[in-house]
Design a binder for these strands. Structure first.
Lengths: 222, 222
DNA sequence: AAGCTTCATTTTGTCGACAATAATAGCTGT
DNA sequence: ACAGCTATTATTGTCGACAAAATGAAGCTT
């Protein structure tokens, strides 16, 4: 199982438009902070305004755009403050996810997770450090899903992670932190394997906190 | 300031319909688990299907209804498991909120919060135990807002709290826990006043955990 | 020249009709 | 009688047009 398992399948036209728009927003094709004109988008994406409106509504529930009545929708603007706040929420939620994963993941899921980390280790040792983007995501997603908590999964996977990715792409954070992050991952998995809820949560929180500090440092540099 | 400060003001017709529908769902006027027919609702509320659809979309972002493409929307069904999961998320988020409140609340806000608790104390001492519903909410809302974290506020105030209220109303949990809860509140505020982030988070988490355990006990009784 | 009012234009909100999909009932064949 | 298929019905999805509100420009007043 890869993170491709999360590829939502679009059945309606509004689905496709929503997914397309989300990509365009996250990747910055449509710049952050800009206004979303319904008529403009409806001609651009070749769908009716109703479809666009529905797509925008869904984007709003992801916190990717903000709407004001009788005025319109604009893409959220990216601020250092906003990113910090995002990481605070992420720390709380993923910490809890790790705790619940330690309680709820099946032995088989844990084994899979362990072997996943082994693969990453081979890759990292092999000198390639593409790690961060795919591997890191895979690691975090499995633990989030492992929590078996529907609300947690929803908020993190459909909400926060897209926003974080938007920050990462647009503020350019391909970041190092590869090898150190790997050790942190290893320790979290070990705690989960030991069914140590307390420790799993604490380690995950620290992992995310380090990541936040790392990003904060970068932001202040530029 | 009271919690009435959160009364969202409805400007468009979709706003009003959304708010009305939310009340009807939370209060159980429309029973949990039932299907939401667009045409039916549009005649019932005297608005076009377009505004019903928009309202349903927003209800979906609150996690009060679930939609399936080409099939329709139904109100979420209330399960003990779901309530437990909700409290897990709440514990994580409000714990973080208390931590951030200890860091970010102004001295004046803290003073207000303290005097609020004093008022509650007078009321509780006076024998009336209406406490829980209004007072408890006021306490928690202030701390959530005190975190100054927009994401936290959004998820808790617009999402989780309505769901929790739905559970409380429909599964009938006017709950005691008045006096003990009051002491817990007092300790949390004390920690915030001392700017002790660590302790504030821990105490808030325990407070919510106790509350969860209390509810779990009741669920198993019935 | 600055500020206010008024009017034109643009954009969002709402509506009813049509298209497409899913659920249902009835029919047919074995 | 039952299973499977087909046609009918009901419901959701999509569209274009109209209504209402906000933005921006022009003209007037001071």
């Amino acid at each position: 199982m890869s993170i491709a398992a999360f590829a939502e399948q679009a059945v309606t036209s509004a689905d496709k438009t929503f997914l397309q728009l989300r990509v365009d927003i996250v990747e910055g094709t449509i710049p952050a902070g800009s206004k979303l004109s319904e008529t403009e988008l409806s001609t651009k994406y070749q769908v009716s305004r109703a479809v666009i409106r529905e797509a925008i509504n869904r984007l709003e529930s992801c916190h990717l755009v903000e709407r004001k009545a009788n005025v319109g929708a604009r893409i959220v603007s990216l601020t250092p403050e906003g990113l910090i706040q995002l990481y605070q929420v992420r720390e709380a939620l993923e910490g809890m996810a790790a705790r619940l994963a330690a309680k709820n993941m099946s032995d088989e899921e844990i084994a899979d997770l362990t072997s996943l980390l082994d693969n990453h280790f081979q890759t990292v040792k092999g000198g390639e450090s593409y790690y961060q983007e795919a591997g890191d995501l895979d690691f975090h997603y499995r633990i989030i899903l492992g929590s078996k908590n529907q609300h947690l999964i929803e908020v993190l996977v459909n909400g926060i992670y897209h926003l974080i990715r938007m920050y990462r792409v647009q503020l350019g954070m391909a970041g190092p932190r590869v090898t150190t992050a790997f050790d942190e991952h290893k320790n979290v998995v070990q705690a989960i394997a030991n069914r140590d809820e307390e420790l799993a949560e604490m380690l995950m929180r620290r992992h995310i906190l380090y990541s936040k500090n790392n990003i904060e440092r970068k932001l202040l540099q530029s």
